[in-house]
Design a protein around this nucleic acid. Structure first.
Lengths: 92, 92
DNA sequence: TAGATTAGTCTATAAAATAGACTAATCTAC
DNA sequence: GTAGATTAGTCTATTTTATAGACTAATCTA
């Protein structure tokens, strides 16, 4: 079981990233309804695990950090769901 | 998203309970490889949420606490898996 | 009766999540 | 140009949660 995926914020971030390409930090803060500090800590874990890529650039002379799901992150999420489904079969 | 189900120990307990009827406390401790105090705390949350029933009896003059998944717990787990699947569709 | 075993709770510690202060830079309006 | 507002993001302190193991109370074994 993937402990990284046992988190509301991290799962929410992955959900957002599943359907788009790059998403910026402030966009994720708003869509997840959390705070800068909290999201920053969670994203760091996802980056460290290789589940998301982080890219720091400047846009209009302002810093911009954006994130994208990696293949590895996508596969990890699929695997996680598969494990849950396997468990669920026992429930029916 | 059901925060109660975002826990390795609690998910593990539910996985055990999905396939059987009543399971005793020490059996769960052994199968989950955790400690008494830890499991006790997690089971308390599941009981408080109405996801599992707790029954305290005496067997051979010894106390025995055993647990069983409730319909509500089963449904909550199903719903949780369903939500994960919904997310996953975006990933493929 | 002494020591070992068992069930389970209680408590202290460790780890994780969270909020918001803080820094540094740009923008706006005077 | 400068004062105040805004933005991005990091850092730190606090709160919450998870965890381990001590502890209690009872039974069993020799």
């Amino acid at each position: 079981m993937d402990e990284l995926l046992l988190s509301k914020i991290r799962l929410g971030a992955i959900a957002e990233l599943l359907s788009s390409e790059w998403i910026t930090f402030p966009t994720l803060v708003r869509s997840l309804g959390t705070t800068n500090g909290n999201l920053g800590a969670h994203l760091l874990k996802l980056v460290d695990a290789g589940y998301v890529n982080e890219e720091k650039t400047f846009v209009d002379k302002r810093p911009q950090t954006r994130y994208r799901l990696t293949r590895r992150g996508r596969e990890a999420f699929k695997k996680h769901v598969g494990e849950m489904q396997t468990l669920l079969r026992k429930a029916i």
